[in-house]
Design a binder for these strands. Structure first.
Lengths: 249, 249
DNA sequence: TGGCCTTTCTGATCCAGATCAAGTCGGTGT
DNA sequence: ACACCGACTTGATCTGGATCAGAAAGGCCA
């Protein structure tokens, strides 16, 4: 494979294709049915895809797939919390995204060619994901133009948010990157204050924002000191996002 | 609008919706017909979209659209060269992508909701673009499931490359970012050496890579000195990409 | 309950890269 | 040919953030 050896040894092996831990799909899939990629489906078609899906349980730090691995499935987060990251030659890992229950990921693999995962996916705690064969999904879309419209809409919104991520990363200043990241997490955007739960442990948020954990910690301390952010573990309260934004120049 | 005033005054006004400079669409659209978004179209449907498209000529530094402007068209580069960028409150502009003849851009607006441009688009020299109404394209796709499959494939490949861009930007080291950028420009990837034409003037490549022009210049000088890159204006010759990559650790 | 381990925080140092400031070079218009 | 202007380079300094090194604060297991 070529990078199996650079994987941090504390990580478990990736799940062997299907795998033990499989069980028949049951009912907490209401959330999946609400997802933009599935919302348009009628009950029959939904059942058809789900029948071919498999539920997988992942332990803390267990790797679901690796970058460059051939991709025949995409995923839906039933419970828990995962992250997407890449490893480079020097073994540095860089977090690219975080995933929460209700998210789909690697869905770009439905139409990617060549279909190889672009990164690693790792559970950050005990998690459960549904693995959905891309073929099954693709087959339904081919038959049903209306479904395809919905998928296109989803792909478009995903593209917009990735573009936005890219925009954040071109900000040179570490503090400004953090501020924009926090404001994006706010439910109401920059409009109104609110509480935010970091979707990743702080050290991984740091890696997501291309800075060191120490730098993250110091910037957060500084924001706390100036009263712009109230911190309680991984919950942050932001009373006035507008003032925060102006600080970011 | 709210940011008309931050636009650098040396830039011209954006094209007034349709505009003078319009002419009937002629024959150098062969290239468009080859584009993944149009390849599947039969002659009749292709003609149908094209009939509703308008050709626009842009002068040096002319802005085609602005960020947050309502988006009713997407674009195809007939000739010239453009860039996508954003402006923030402090007036700093950050280049997010470069465009060459044969590229489509803002095509995500076909399905985006709300349909507002996520950035500015500006011509870097005398250029010609085709503006294609998203409605026309969307209508065709709704009728034709096969076309939708192709569009999905295109969106997927676009998503993969944006993800890849994001990955480059999470590299902390300026030299490493530049090296990865250069290797990506190589036709053969890291496999074999070759010549590369920078798709943007050097100062904008710098902004694309979140570094200062001076830093870009110095790093390039350093690579030149160590024989890893031969520089001739905006053409770079990279004899041994593998060696270049290893230097990036 | 205590010890260990992981995560986070804080302090001290150092360096990559930003910033400031001239130069050089090539192109363009007069 | 000249002056001008923008794109690029080069040099000198300064600083934000990386790095190194501990210390504190929880969790978790025995």
């Amino acid at each position: 494979m070529g990078f199996a050896e650079v994987v941090n040894t504390k990580f478990s092996q990736p799940v062997p294709m299907p795998a033990e831990g499989i069980e028949t799909v049951s009912d907490d899939l209401r959330a999946l049915q609400q997802h933009p990629l599935f919302r348009a489906f009628d009950a029959v078609d939904f059942a058809r895809v789900i029948r071919q899906a498999r539920r997988v349980r992942l332990g803390h730090h267990q790797v679901l797939y690796r970058q460059d691995m051939p991709a025949s499935h995409f995923y839906f987060v039933v419970s828990g919390c995962l992250r997407l990251y890449r490893l480079d030659a020097s073994g540095i890992d860089r977090t690219l995204d975080s995933l929460a229950p209700g998210d789909c990921f690697a869905e770009v693999m439905i139409y990617a060619d060549p279909a190889r995962y672009a990164c690693y996916a790792e559970a950050l705690k005990q998690s459960e994901v549904l693995m959905i064969p891309v073929k099954a999904y693709r087959a339904l879309l081919a038959e049903n133009p209306d479904y395809a419209q919905h998928a296109l809409r989803h792909y478009a919104s995903r593209a917009v948010s990735r573009f936005h991520d890219l925009e954040i990363m071109t900000v040179q200043n570490a503090r400004d990157r953090l501020i924009r990241y926090l404001v994006d997490l706010l439910p109401g955007g920059a409009r109104e204050g609110g509480e935010v739960e970091l979707p990743l442990p702080k050290c991984l948020v740091a890696s997501r924002l291309a800075m060191q954990p120490e730098t993250f910690s110091r910037i957060l301390a500084e924001l706390k000191a100036s009263g712009l952010v109230r911190v309680n573990k991984s919950r942050l309260f932001i009373p006035n996002p507008t003032r925060l934004m102006t600080l970011s120049q």
